[in-house]
């Protein structure tokens, strides 16, 4: 019984998070300006981190946490660097 409940909840969560990633990608493609694309990329990163966490629940293995943590870190650094780039036009000055 509990396995069935969990299975449907996980499937629904996977669908919703994948849809969220697709919508974030849509915002990245549509723009209209560079800051919108960076915001879309940041949301994409957060959503993929959540998706990895749900994969971890589904498989029952803790290896996905490390992946989620790395995705979160990379997303943070990438967004900060891109925001810096938007503000100054160059990252290293």
């Amino acid at each position: 019984m509990s396995a069935i409940i969990l299975y449907y909840a996980l499937t629904a969560a996977h669908v919703m998070l994948s849809l969220a990633m697709a919508l974030a990608l849509l915002r990245m493609i549509r723009g209209p300006r560079a800051q919108d694309r960076v915001l879309g990329l940041d949301t994409l990163y957060v959503n993929s981190m959540l998706l990895l966490l749900t994969f971890g629940i589904g498989s029952g293995r803790t290896i996905y946490f490390e992946a989620a943590l790395i995705i979160g870190l990379l997303g943070f650094v990438a967004t900060v660097a891109l925001a810096k780039f938007l503000m100054r036009g160059e990252v290293i000055e």
Partner: peptide, 22 residues
């Protein structure tokens, strides 16, 4: 199982609504 499913659905629904807002 019910608690895990409820939190899972809440979290992913909020993430989806946020991205719809985006």
């Amino acid at each position: 199982a019910i608690a895990v499913s409820a939190f899972l659905l809440l979290g992913s629904a909020l993430a989806l609504i946020g991205t719809i807002g985006l």
